[in-house]
């Protein structure tokens, strides 16, 4: 397995979706390839960091505006209409 092939499989590797044969090939490559080990470590960390910065909270005032907007809307229509 080349580095290019190894890197192409990392998402499926982290998801546990590789067949056991391919997983063993990848792990054998990682064992002998420091650059790919570094790649995997930073790839995994990138996934975590991106998830953390993407975890934004909805502003409280927006929640209040949304509630007001929707309460009017659902009450304005008769049930079943």
């Amino acid at each position: 397995m080349t580095c290019k092939e190894a890197i192409a499989k990392l998402a499926e590797y982290l998801d546990g979706e590789l067949t056991s044969v391919v997983q063993k090939q990848l792990e054998a490559h990682l064992k002998t390839c420091p650059p790919c080990r570094a790649y995997l470590a930073t790839y995994r960390k990138t996934k975590e960091l991106a998830a953390k910065v993407n975890r934004v909270d909805m502003p409280e005032d927006l929640k209040a505006r949304l509630r007001a907007l929707l309460i009017d809307r659902i009450r304005a229509r008769p049930a079943g209409g």
Partner: peptide, 19 residues
Amino acid sequence: FKADGHREGDRAYVLADWS
């Protein structure tokens, strides 16, 4: 990647691990 399947970049770059 290079033709042989190794990543492009100098040794220090491909080994960089800031995780």
